[in-house]
Design a protein around this nucleic acid. Structure first.
Lengths: 143, 143
DNA sequence: ACGTAAATGCATCAATGTTTCAAATACAGA
DNA sequence: TCTGTATTTGAAACATTGATGCATTTACGT
């Protein structure tokens, strides 16, 4: 794990998180990957040196502080993706649709597609919304 | 577990599932509960007599045959709810919105609110859609 | 009522995640 | 730059959720 002092260091500081090798590595990986990754995926990508427990804690604190968000999935494993810049500990603003490919299993954040609003029955008040699509992604379309 | 020959027996037969005590009990419980239940919840409700493994298998086959659906959640535990009548092994038609109360933790199927359609980027083709809201439910509103 | 395929119950195994605690480390302040 | 302290890490143990293999039991078509 390199020690390059770059924008990830700033991101961590902005969210009151100490600058450690594991955090930089996870942040860098999630930022450069165009689809959501599970804890297991991240472990694989970062190589055999990473501690599984530390990784769980890293993901948990990142989620709490608003650096990453958990993509809603109807499977058993949680997948994570980098948040948009506006997110913080106090509020998540990931109002985009998620798309899961049933072929390659990748989960994409479709940042350009925002979640439509619905009218709820009386006395139900929504605070957050998640919209998850499943189907065939760009990469897996038959030519 | 009673042996009352009622509409659950028919439901099971219609979906090619044998009529057993556990299946009748789970089906009855999910049908009368207005929010989604986790495997653990169901175990508690049905009492100490139920076998955990059999329950997992029951939920799995119910989901496969289209009797119940798994409610998308961004937590770790899976929750299940009874499907609408039109669902079958071949296709689920649960095009309603789900609502999770951040206070009582209950997940409601808002059957009267259908999921709005979105326009996807080129070459993405959606097959299923899930819409999950979180907020304060009817029961938990301050007076 | 009988035979067979399916479902159950139990032991075992696997994956995911949490907790506890000592050792190491980041970072603020002198 | 050095030092103190609060945070983070790493390791072992534990908890929960779920799957698998197999013998026994049960549902249901004939």
């Amino acid at each position: 794990m390199s020690t390059a002092p770059d924008r990830y260091v700033q991101l961590l500081a902005q969210h009151s998180l100490r600058n450690t090798a594991m955090r930089r590595a996870v942040l860098e990986l999630l930022s450069r990957t165009p689809f959501a990754l599970s804890s297991h995926d991240i472990e694989q990508e970062l190589g055999p040196g990473v501690d599984r427990i530390t990784l769980y804690r890293t993901l948990k604190s990142f989620e709490e502080k608003g650096l990453i968000h958990r993509v809603p999935e109807n499977s058993d494993v949680s997948k994570y993706a980098a948040c948009s810049i506006e997110c913080s500990q106090h509020a998540h603003f990931d109002n985009h649709v998620h798309f899961k490919c049933t072929n390659c299993q990748h989960v994409y954040c479709l940042n350009q597609v925002s979640i439509p609003v619905v009218t709820l029955p009386a006395k139900f008040e929504a605070i957050t919304r998640d919209y998850l699509l499943a189907g065939v992604c760009r990469e897996c379309q038959p030519a």
